[in-house]
């Protein structure tokens, strides 16, 4: 093995780790929602793509960098997620899985086609000034945009962790996730907490979308791909586990980047699905999950 090859492998791995942080943030939203209310959000990738489009519009029409529009997008998504849960999803909690699936599928179809109607089928990307900047560390070169996106994702994940461990609402949500009946008995407003959770999950995905648009351009057709990607990540990491979602994001990010280098780029998701199948069979609760499904 030549030094050149090792260097490009190391480059691919760091690139994968950086992208993987953003994947992790996206998957975190899915994991939080499932962990608390046992609803699988089949519209996850679609929500992500809406976030990417909003960030793109902010840049295109208002000349606001995605990093600056991110808090606004997260806030909008929190509100939208809260309302969505309250109005549409709430009656479906505890219903058979196929009914939840159909509901979220309908929402997904509406979101992705709204994007198609508003922004058209062409791919929309943004040109940041930092696009061609890079940081050098010894022989390594890091794309500046990826580094910024990854660091922001880490900060948001940290904030989320503080929210769930330090705030009263965060602790109440965890209580409702652990024991729904107990939470009701001690007088927690579980319906409000669920809506809050969906809002938080949506805000995560919206933020991930604003970061992702700095890395790759968006088309409506990415949505289904991201839904699948988020599923793969949370199952590999452990559905409902926050650490798992982040670790899963890193693992899938790296595996995609390395597969793109060693095999063909078009084979990269085959490796992800291969990992998913292995994890489902050997450790269905995921790498960081506590109990079996």
């Amino acid at each position: 093995m030549t030094a050149d090859f090792l260097l490009s492998l190391a480059q691919a791995i760091t690139k994968g780790l950086l992208t993987g942080m953003v994947y992790g943030l996206m998957a975190l939203g899915l994991s939080v929602i499932f962990g608390v209310m046992r609803v699988v959000n089949f519209a996850h990738g679609e929500i992500m793509v809406v976030g990417m489009y909003l960030a793109w519009m902010g840049f295109e029409y208002l000349q606001v960098s995605p990093m600056l529009s991110l808090p606004v997008i997260a806030l909008i998504f929190f509100g939208a997620g809260y309302a969505l849960q309250r109005v549409l999803i709430s009656p479906f909690i505890g219903r058979p899985e196929h009914q939840q699936f159909l509901l979220l599928l309908a929402i997904a179809i509406l979101l992705v086609n709204a994007c198609l109607v508003v922004a058209g089928p062409d791919s929309r990307g943004i040109q940041l000034e930092s696009q061609f900047d890079s940081y050098e560390l010894g022989p390594f070169v890091f794309d500046a945009v990826r580094v910024h996106a990854a660091l922001t994702a880490v900060v948001i994940a940290g904030l989320l962790w503080l929210f769930f461990t330090r705030t009263r609402t965060g602790k109440s949500i965890r209580a409702a996730a652990d024991n729904n009946l107990g939470a009701l008995v001690v007088g927690l407003d579980v319906r409000r907490l669920y809506a809050f959770t969906f809002g938080v999950g949506a805000a995560c995905v919206g933020a991930a979308g604003a970061l992702m648009i700095t890395i790759i351009p968006v088309t409506p057709f990415l949505a289904a791909e991201y839904t699948l990607l988020a599923f793969v990540i949370v199952i590999v990491g452990g559905l409902g586990s926050m650490t798992g979602a982040l670790a899963g994001g890193l693992l899938i990010g790296v595996s995609e980047a390395v597969a793109g280098l060693l095999l063909q780029p078009s084979l990269k998701s085959m490796v992800s699905f291969g990992i998913l199948i292995l994890v489902l069979l050997l450790r269905p609760q995921g790498l960081f999950g506590k109990s079996g499904p």
Partner: peptide, 8 residues
């Protein structure tokens, strides 16, 4: 995309 919106 309108057709799919009706469908959804």
């Amino acid at each position: 995309g309108l057709k799919q919106i009706f469908y959804g």
